[in-house]
Computed example of a mutant assay.
Amino acid sequence: MEKIKVKDNIINKINEFRHTSSPAGNVSSSVEDLDVPEDVMIECDGLVKIYKTKDIEVLALQGLDLTVKKGELMAIIGNSGSGKSTFLNMIGGLDRPSAGKLYVNGKNLFQMTEEELVEYKRTTVGFVWQNNARNLLPYLTAWENVMTPMLFNDNSMSEAQKKERAENLLELVGLGDRKNSKLSQLSGGEQQRVAIAIALANEPKLLLADEPTGAVDRKTADAILDMFRKLNEQLGLTIVIVTHDKELASRVNRVISIRDGKTSSERIIKSEYKKRMENITLDWNQEETQDEFVVLDRAGRLQIPAELLKQLELDGNKVKIEMDGDKIVIEKPSQK
């Protein structure tokens, strides 16, 4: 029997299930450059995204300002429709911004050509999705899935070296003994670990995870978060997680809350909890592990968390504001 090369075998399988995304919309490249510091991975300045249909326009991002430093492990939270997944698609190169400024790893995403954007997605970012169908090809083994992105990346690695790297990445995520398993032979948590290995295949600078624990149980979710922390610490990888999982969000160093397409608040882990990350007895739902800060935009506006506004029991859209020593006090207007 004639020997079939691994690369040809995988590509043939991929072609049977390949789908293509719609091309990115046109965006103006006449954007003034920002002076982005060397230690910054993501810089957003007034980022806007408008989705247009025949009848309506939807403003998904409304002037988002955000800075993410290199080497951060952070989470982004927000209600459905708040703009968090739109933001992830922007920095992942899957969609084009409508206005504002957006830099990732020093690259201006507004000024990229389609060819440069393809290269950016191959080499700068890795994606982990909640839906395993977007991560894995069911007719490939675990190591073939992990090797697949390498086949489309121009480098000097031989086929044997690519296979060895795929197997090493599976070892890194704790699945070295399941390298020959296919999708149907893996649990949900194991599939997500393979997906993480796939995202790391081309050595990205930035790992993006969209609801990575949304389809698994609590124990598996904890294991996935521990995996992200291991990758962050050992590889120095910048990781941004979009999640509804409040317990997961409470266990990272920094959490950004997006509301109505803008950054509304930020939570920073308290110093006394940084050394307790691995404490399995800590009840992350009960203990306040983070300090919360309301974020001022560049015009001096802020969004007060909804739960605090609810406690004020406002009758309208006005609040009373005044200085009290070195504090700004916001309270319900007195009735006249």
Rank of each mutant, 00 (worst) to 15 (best):
A166G: 07
A160L: 07
K101F: 06
M157T: 00
E144W: 03
G106T: 08
R122M: 12
M157E: 12
L136C: 08
E167A: 11
N168S: 14
Y120L: 05
P97N: 02
M147E: 06
N135M: 09
E164Y: 07
Y103F: 14
L151I: 04
N135E: 12
Y139F: 13
Y120G: 04
G92R: 02
I76N: 01
G78S: 04
A75K: 04
L172S: 01
T148W: 00
M90F: 08
E167N: 13
E144R: 03
G126T: 10
I91G: 01
S82N: 03
I91H: 10
G78P: 01
F127R: 01
M90T: 02
E144V: 04
E144P: 03
N89E: 09
L169P: 02
P97W: 02
L109M: 14
L151Y: 02
K163R: 14
N131P: 06
V118E: 12
E119D: 13
L170G: 05
T123Q: 15
S80E: 09
G126L: 12
S158M: 14
T113Q: 07
R134S: 09
F110Q: 10
V125S: 01
K101W: 08
M147G: 03
N155E: 06
L137G: 07
I91L: 08
R134W: 03
E167G: 07
I76R: 01
E115P: 05
L172M: 15
L172Y: 13
V104Q: 09
E114Y: 11
I91W: 06
F110R: 10
V104E: 01
L88N: 03
E144G: 07
T123S: 15
F110V: 13
L117I: 12
